[in-house]
Design a protein around this nucleic acid. Structure first.
Lengths: 225, 225
DNA sequence: CTATGTAGGATAGTTCTACTATCATAATTA
DNA sequence: TAATTATGATAGTAGAACTATCCTACATAG
């Protein structure tokens, strides 16, 4: 059985739906590739157009600017991750096992999910680590937030916070702990690979260490006292 | 008694030492102000020059580009914070009290330190929250790291990690926990003010909540079991 | 079979950003 | 007094970040 997952994206993120046309899908596919290669600062629509074999104006027909494209890509990633979290924790009763699954999904490099056709999730994960906080660390957060651009991230946070509360309903900071897990999964991997002395994983450089650290952190915090 | 604190900065961060001249100090002072006002993305040397009453070329004599200026400013902040941490935890034996001091210093809005003449640390803290991760989330991390641009951050991390290890020498992740405290002090404040549903502090919006959250998180993690 | 709409290629142009270069001058220091 | 340094004044360039216009191929609706 071949299943395809379609993620419904916020329509205000684009001018024309990139998932409906060939060029649109190329913009997503090669956009991810190019941002990964040269980083978001050096990335622009002219370079992307060259890579795809279209024109700059062609890309602008789909996205207002590169910042919107980055938000689109990260929103896609968080939606997809939430789907995986719900899928993988389905039918599991123990909130402990659920939380471990979540941490694992957050911190381990994913393999390309072939259920999604033109998105390579393993590269996407790398982009999320290095670029995703740039989506909201701007003077535009409030307006972008009003447009619900960060809803997928918030929804994922909610899902995780709910598992935390199921584990221990008395724990006072389920949401803040959820964002801590999400953000630290990314930051610890980034630090491990780029500024290793900021972590305790410089020897092995394995994501499994990040998983252990996060599990220890989370379960110490929410253990019933 | 009037004391002045001078922080020795990495010389590779600037072309001409901004702390030695009038114009240089203005670049720092008004640079901080302007980045705070319009955000790092919209900030540029032309606008800064206008604000100061000099020319664009004048600013470029001190800093290669705006990214270097941001690194300078954040390096300054972390150095100053490390100084405060060491000063405020001096003569305290209890690592527990030390850690609480650290968390408090990290998460509470500082008042302007008048020991530093032209730097307004209360504004600086706001910049750190919204802009500091942009210093290392680039394709240049490795080179910038080789130039020791992130040393002040790493040193602060070491100081905190040492306190953690003094509290519990068996705890396996002192450095990662230290970066978690530092980063989460910033992110939780940012989220609280801009994307409040990602935190548990949307009602009160007080930094004291962040302090409580971090204390709970840290001491749960390092408590001897 | 024609009219209409849509996707997208081709080209050009604008304003702003991120610099670099040169020259002149005032103040400082040797 | 000469040399150095700081900085002001001015100009110029390459690239980024768009916007606009025109044209054509193709699908589809009537």
């Amino acid at each position: 059985m071949e299943v395809q997952v379609q993620i419904k994206m916020n329509e205000k993120l684009f001018l024309r739906n990139p998932e409906e046309t060939d060029l649109g899908r190329k913009i997503i596919q090669y956009g991810i590739q190019l941002i990964h290669e040269i980083g978001f600062e050096l990335f622009n629509f002219k370079k992307l157009a060259e890579r795809i074999g279209t024109t700059e104006a062609g890309v602008y027909r789909y996205f207002e600017n590169k910042h919107r494209l980055l938000i689109f890509i990260t929103a896609y990633y968080w939606s997809w991750l939430q789907y995986r979290v719900i899928f993988e924790t389905n039918n599991i009763d123990s909130p402990e096992i659920k939380l471990k699954k979540v941490i694992s999904l957050l911190a381990k490099t994913v393999e390309d999910d072939h259920k999604t056709l033109y998105v390579d999730e393993s590269i996407l994960h790398q982009i999320i680590i290095a670029e995703s906080s740039k989506t909201y660390l701007t003077k535009n957060v409030n307006e972008d937030n009003k447009e619900l651009f960060f809803k997928p991230y918030k929804d994922l946070c909610s899902v995780i916070a709910n598992i935390i509360s199921t584990y221990n309903s008395k724990y006072k900071y389920p949401r803040s702990l959820a964002t801590t897990i999400i953000e630290m999964a990314q930051f610890q991997i980034f630090f491990m690979n780029n500024l290793p002395s900021l972590t305790d994983f410089s020897k092995t450089k394995s994501e499994l260490n990040v998983v252990s650290f996060l599990e220890d952190l989370v379960f110490s915090a929410i253990r019933k006292k």
